[in-house]
Design a protein around this nucleic acid. Structure first.
Lengths: 343, 343
DNA sequence: GTGAAAGCGCTAACAC
DNA sequence: GTGTTAGCGCTTTCAC
C-alpha cells in the first residue's frame, strides 16, 4: 500500500470490447455470455465469465439501458406540497421508503429518490418520468397533487401511488382506508368516554381529510357536536408551539383528541403534560400510524395502525405487474386499532 | 377528459431528432440550444425551447450520460453489516438520508439509493461504482466494512463516507468525534453522581466502539471500575428484550448507563420504568444522536448531539469537491452535550 | 455457436 | 451560427 502505483498490472478492462479482445472473441459473444441466456458454448462462456471476474469487469448500465430501453431503476418521488418545510425525514414516509428499498432491491431494481416541491416545479412528475432514467415510478403521498397525478396516469402506465383512494380515480393507488381509520379512532375515543372531540392536524392533504371525515362520521352518528379542527404544520418545531396554543385555548372544552399522526400525538402528549392535563383521565388521545414512537410515549399511545411493510409490498407488486403490462386495481389496506393507554 | 383519446393531436416528440425536424434545424443545434451555453442564434434558440416546452420534450438522460460520461446521479449506499435485521429505517440513517436528498437535489444531482448486505455480496461497493450509473458515491456508515472501503478508496476518488475517523486511513470520511462524544457522556454521568457505568449497545461497529472507548477514558481517568458492556441488537424488537434482561441482571450494581443511540436509550427508559427503577434518581442515563425522540421521552433524554444537517452538508460538499478533482481532508464534527432530565 | 454491423439518443469536434 | 459526423458501451438482428 505504500509504494505509489499499487493497481494490479493486468490490463484494465472497462468495456465489453476490452474483455472480448482478451478472450479472443467478439463483443457480441461476450454480451451473450454475460447475459447467460443465449446458447453460447459452455467453454467460451466459462472463460469469459472467469476473465470478467478476474478483472472486476461490470457492464455499463447506462449503455445497456440505452440499448434495451430499460434501466432497471424505479423512481421514488416524494412531493412536498402542503408543507414545504415538512422534512423528507418525516417518520412515516421514511419508514415506507426503507421498506420500498428492501422490496425493490429484492426484485433486482435500483431506487432513484427524488424530493420535489410541486409549487416550484409544476412539471415535477413528467420531468421525472421523461428523464429516461427510470422504468417506473412510485409516488409517495398525493400531497395536493391529486389532479396532476390523474392527468399523468392517463398517459403513463407504470406508476403507482401511495395515498388515499377516491371514488372513480384513474391512478393506481395503495393505501390505508383512512376514513375507516378515522372512524375507529373516534369510536375508541367515544367508547373511552369522550364527548367533545377535536382533530389535531392539517385537514388539507386528502389522507388527513379522510381521517377527519371518518371521525366526523362517528360524531354525527352518535349525535355529538361537530369535531373541532386544530390545524398544525407537520414540522415538529412549528407543530409544538401550535399545539401548545391549541391546548391552552381549548382545554376544558374538549375531552378527546384524534391526532392525524403519531408524531403529532406524541408532541400533544408532551404539551398536555406540560399544561397539567392528565391523559387519559382529563383528555383521551388517539394517534395514527403506529410508528415505533407510539410504544415509547408515556403513557403508551393508543393509535390506528397502518401496515407499512404490507403497503411497500403492495406498491412494488402492483408496479411490477403494471410494468409487465397487466392492468391493476388499487389496493386498500385495512387500518387496525392498537389499544394502549391514552384512550 | 371524458372522450377516449385525449392526448393532443401534436406529433409526439420523443427525441432530439424529432424536435430538430419540427424546428427545421439539425439535432446538433437543438442539443446546443437546449444546453443553452453555446452561441446559438437567439431566435433559433427561442423557437426550439418553446417547441420543446409545447411538446413536453425531455432529453433522455441515459443517452446524454453515456455520451458525456457522467450521469448527474450520486449513489448513496447503506451497508448493513453488523446486524442484517437492522432496518434501513434506522432513525439516524434515515434522517441523514433525508438531509442528503435535500442537499443533492439542491446541487442538481439525483440520488440513487442502495441498501446492501456485504455478507451476501462482498463486491457490493465495486459493483455500485462500476455500474456506470453514478458519478460518485456516499457510503452511510462503515459498518464492518472498513477494510473494503479502504481498498476501494485507493482507486476511486469520488467517494465520501459517513463514519468514524481512524488514524491514517485513506478514505475521506465525515462524522462526529465519537470518542469525544463518549467522554462527554461519561463525564455527564459521573457529574450527576454515577460511579458504576454501563454501555448499552453493540461495541462492534467502529462508531460505537469509539463511543465506548471515550467513556472508558473517563472511567479510567476518574479511577472508576471498567465500564460494563451490555450488548444489544439494533432492531427494536430484539433490543427490547435484551435490555430488559440486562436491567434485570444488573440493576442495583450499576447507576449510570450510556446508550449507544437515543433509540436504545428510549427503550431502556421504558424498561427501567417497567422494573420500577427511577431515572435519574436510581440510575442516570445518557443517549447519543439527539433524535427528535430524545425530546419526547419522559423524562426528556440527556444526550450527545450529532449535527446531522451539518454532516449531510459536509458529505455533499466534500464529494462535489472530489468530483471536481480536489483532494480533501476528512471532516470531524464536534459532538455536543444536550442536558435534559435523565442525567 | 459466433462475428459483423447497425443502432439506442445524445453531444462534441470539425467543417463551412 | 449551424450542419455533418463520429462515437459513448452495449445488445441484437442477420449472416454464415
Amino acid at each position: 500500500m505504500s509504494d505509489g502505483e499499487d493497481r494490479p498490472a493486468r490490463t484494465t478492462v472497462r468495456t465489453i470490447t476490452d474483455l472480448a479482445r482478451l478472450a479472443g472473441v467478439s463483443a457480441g459473444t461476450v454480451s451473450r455470455a454475460l447475459a447467460g441466456n443465449s446458447l453460447v458454448n459452455t467453454r467460451t462462456r466459462e472463460k469469459i465469465v472467469s476473465l470478467a471476474r478476474e478483472h472486476g469487469f461490470r457492464p455499463n448500465q447506462m449503455a445497456s439501458g440505452l440499448r434495451r430501453q430499460k434501466t432497471g431503476v424505479i423512481g421514488v418521488v416524494i412531493p412536498l406540497g402542503h408543507d414545504t418545510r415538512q422534512q423528507i425525514s418525516d417518520s412515516f414516509f421514511m419508514t415506507l421508503l426503507g421498506h420500498l428499498a428492501d422490496e425493490l432491491t429484492h426484485e433486482g431494481y435500483d431506487l432513484m429518490l427524488r424530493r420535489v416541491v410541486p409549487g416550484d416545479d409544476p412539471d415535477w412528475l413528467d420531468r421525472f418520468i421523461g428523464s429516461g432514467m427510470i422504468d417506473g415510478v412510485i409516488v409517495i403521498g398525493q400531497s395536493d397533487q391529486f389532479e396532476r397525478i390523474e392527468e399523468v396516469a392517463d398517459g403513463y402506465r407504470p406508476m403507482v401511488v401511495w395515498g388515499n383512494r377516491q371514488e372513480g380515480q384513474h391512478h393506481c393507488v395503495v393505501g390505508t382506508d383512512n376514513r375507516l381509520g378515522g372512524r375507529l379512532a373516534a369510536e375508541r375515543l367515544v367508547a373511552a368516554g369522550a364527548r367533545a372531540l377535536a382533530f389535531l392536524g392539517d385537514t388539507g392533504p386528502m389522507e388527513f381529510a379522510a381521517r377527519f371525515a371518518g371521525a366526523q362520521d362517528i360524531a354525527t352518528r352518535r349525535g355529538l357536536p361537530p369535531i373541532l379542527p386544530l390545524p398544525t404544520h407537520l414540522s415538529p418545531d412549528r407543530a409544538g408551539e401550535e399545539i401548545a396554543r391549541h391546548i391552552a385555548a381549548h382545554s376544558g372544552t374538549i375531552d378527546g383528541i384524534f391526532a392525524a399522526t403519531d408524531t403529532l400525538a406524541a408532541l400533544c402528549l408532551i404539551e398536555l403534560r406540560a399544561q397539567g392535563i392528565a391523559v387519559p383521565q382529563d383528555v383521551k388521545l388517539v394517534g395514527f400510524d403506529d410508528l415505533p414512537i407510539a410504544r415509547q410515549t408515556v403513557p403508551p399511545l393508543t393509535t390506528i395502525r397502518q401496515d407499512i411493510a404490507a403497503g411497500a409490498r403492495g406498491l412494488v407488486d402492483l408496479l411490477l405487474r403494471r410494468l409487465a403490462g397487466e392492468s391493476t386495481e388499487s389496493l386498500v389496506l385495512p387500518p387496525e386499532l392498537v389499544a394502549r393507554a391514552t384512550a
